[in-house]
């Protein structure tokens, strides 16, 4: 159970979270950010700085919301993104990958 970004980030992309994340696990997609569920250490700094309340601890969401926001966040890594042959998987650092201009369909 880690932190996730919700759709409150869509078209905001403030990116404060990316500056704070100590393990560089917040990735930039076309319309919003995504937190890598395997790379996140659950430190909570992203939730502290997000001006839009979009970064949240999955475990603090009610089950119905978690069932929506968890998979929507994780899809960036588990689904094949437009224009790619394979899922991103675990890129091991957002700065290594750079921003992508796509979102999971």
């Amino acid at each position: 159970m880690t932190h996730v970004i919700t759709d409150a980030c869509v078209d905001e992309k403030d990116a404060s979270c990316m500056e704070e994340c100590p393990v560089d696990c917040i990735y930039e997609g076309g319309s919003r950010m995504y937190i890598h569920p395997g790379e996140c250490i659950d430190c909570g700094l992203c939730a502290e700085v997000c001006p839009n309340g979009a970064a949240v601890a999955l475990r603090l969401l009610d089950p119905a919301a978690a069932a929506v926001h968890g998979p929507a966040n994780d899809a960036f890594f588990t689904r094949v993104l437009p224009g790619r042959q394979a899922p991103l998987g675990s890129p091991g650092g957002a700065s290594r990958l750079g921003p992508l201009d796509v979102d999971p369909s």
Binding site: E19, E20, P22, V23, D24, L45
Partner: peptide, 12 residues
């Protein structure tokens, strides 16, 4: 003459 950059940390 002194610049202190306190921009957080990355860990690995």
């Amino acid at each position: 003459q002194r610049v202190v950059a306190a921009l957080g940390f990355t860990a690995s």
